[in-house]
Design a protein around this nucleic acid. Structure first.
Lengths: 218, 218, 218, 218
DNA sequence: AATGAATGAGAATTCATTCAT
DNA sequence: GATGAATGAATTCTCATTCAT
């Protein structure tokens, strides 16, 4: 039911590597231009400047192309997030959230069209297993950040999940429907507010005060 | 690009109305059973207990069927929300948010499968115009609620948009991936927290205190 | 691995029945004209005077078309054989063999091209299960004939199998390569000789004499 | 319609000869492993341990590969048959038939999978011309054997043809469907019976007795 | 109004063959 | 000579839509 999405052949030569990149780039452009449903293998190949046959020499099927593209984009995003959160100078929740979300929003700005289309289709592209595994990554990362700094009333797993989905969806939809908010900083600012406010609100009550607590933890 | 989605004929007789309903119900079931991409017109008609030909007598094309179904679901939801929010006994933000979100989550629980599949496809089903218009409804409603009760630092439009998207996405994903949270009340509770925390945080600073302010407004 | 070959829909109307027949006829002609490997679904549909879509409305896939055609031809053949062998006036092995093989050869004469191509592909068209089951029919029939009339040194099952294959293959190849022998009676005569000689030779030794034995049995 | 099947280049060096052999062996294995239809040029090359390009340096097209493989197998078989029949100590029809068919069946046992798949496809692989020519070889041989030893009622050509086809088909089918009979000697024994009985039956009537006649001839 | 048979453009995928390196 | 990347025509199958009955 969930098709594999590994590359069909491990490209050994430089030309082959370039072709794989061209295909992924072609897929990104084709999705952006025609939309997910209209991005046929022939169009992808055509945009990539190759023939269908070549596409199928490197990917077992259409899903694999999108799957790989998704992997690429996700990886790029995740790497950015890790770097942003690892910055030791960050102290308050606001600071961390700001750094992380700035990266998030920035990554989105760069790919816009394709990302939006593609990411909206994740449930179709990947079986629940794959999906959960992929999320586990970003997830684990956020959860770890939470664990390190605070004790919440909610289980951290669900809090991380909720924030991830909320941020994700808002950002994704803004790209499509309110692109101006992507550029004028409103998206970033309000996402920071959303995340920060939620986390503060979930702080365990017995702790002295939000302010002192925060000082202590960070 | 965005096909029309009005019904082809305005059904005046009861029988015709029943047929339309059967088709919409069939579409919902077909989507739930086979997934969005595999819900063909033949399957819809078959589930509805009619023939394809008849389906096309009431709807100009497939998109119209899904469009109408989406309208139905949205309308039902919106009505529920309105009723929930109109309840005069509600006072604090928590109370209002709780009432509204309880309705939201409840509606989701009832339709699960179909709703998830269908709603995930909205960006594909409808052009941006339609989408924006549809949102405008729920939107306007929430915005109005905000206007009536508070002055935020952010423009109310964007705040409403952000909350709508966040709540929507979280709820939708939970149905698919964390169904237990749908039933044990966690989803509802945390959504309330998310919305309330965000709104409090966005409160304009010059206002005396959250509590007094709230009393005044409501 | 072995695709189903039942009809996709049970045709209710006369037109549908006619279409199914047209498809089978088209398949037969297409095979005869282009050969088995070149008989594409489009060619079959085209020869049948319909569109591909219609073909797929009645058969789940290409194999099913050939499978059904095979069934038809086999059934026709088998019926002929039964009738031929049931004739009560037949007494000696020669007479029975002659009657049966005349039917066999006659059936072959009528369909020639298509039959040959199609029957040569049986191992591809049908999984071993289906194949064995199909054979079981003709087989059981021959075996019964043997049982009724004689005791052989060999197990009747293998004798029947051997004769079936031998006769089948010779006849099939003659259609292709020595069509003249099909028409001038040589094929029929020599097949009778082959079958009769084999059976006589396999007669159990302890029996008095071939002649008397034969009288007795028949 | 029937593509050429000579080797593209006449390999003079030992290395080239080894490559050709590797390709033929690869084709045999590929057929045995994947079946005739799925034995692609890439698979053949891959199994042979070379690249597609190299394959096409030695064979003009795919058919040529199979054609050559068929030649090889046939030649090997024919040589075996000749040797078997040339044995001067053989006297009766039974003895000759036994010797020849033992070789036949033995050759089959050694190649099983590939042979079956390949030989079933002969009518597809080769035009009628080629087919007739190829048969002519085995054929001429058998016919000569007949001429040397007996006078039949039938023309020897047709008798040889019939026996060849019958034996061939039975043996081929047994490999697939009754492999046990290939190993326990039943196949061989009954084929001998079939051939011997047929030939005896076709003996010209005016001859004194089968036994004396046979002595005389051999 | 309803039916369901027919349509055919379009999509995914395969594989024999070529050719630049 | 060898390689393997690239090609693209050909094939199977799907499904939204039409239309004769």
């Amino acid at each position: 039911m969930t098709p594999g999405d590994g590359a069909r052949r491990r490209p050994k030569q430089a030309r082959a590597r370039a072709t794989v990149d061209a295909i992924l780039e072609g897929a990104k452009i084709a999705i952006a231009s025609y939309g997910f449903l209209r991005a046929t293998t022939h169009k992808i190949a055509s945009v990539a400047g190759i023939s269908v046959g070549t596409l199928y020499q490197y990917f077992p099927d259409k899903q694999a192309v999108f799957g790989n593209l998704l992997d690429h984009l996700s990886d790029a995003l995740l790497t950015g997030l890790k770097d942003a959160a690892a910055e030791p100078s960050l102290e308050s929740i606001e600071e961390i959230a700001t750094a992380v979300l700035r990266t998030y929003v920035g990554a989105l700005r760069d790919n816009r069209e394709a990302v939006v289309q593609l990411l909206h289709q994740r449930p179709l592209l990947e079986g629940p297993e794959k999906l959960r595994r992929r999320h586990a990554l970003q997830h684990a990362f956020i959860e770890r950040a939470l664990d390190a700094r605070a004790r919440l009333e909610v289980d951290h797993d669900f809090a991380a999940y909720l924030l991830l989905k909320a941020v994700w969806a808002v950002a994704l939809n803004v790209v499509e429907e309110r692109p101006e908010a992507l550029d004028d900083g409103r998206l970033e600012r309000e996402l920071v507010r959303l995340v920060t406010a939620y986390l503060r609100s979930a702080w365990q009550k017995e702790q002295p005060s939000e302010q002192s607590q925060l000082r202590e933890v960070c």
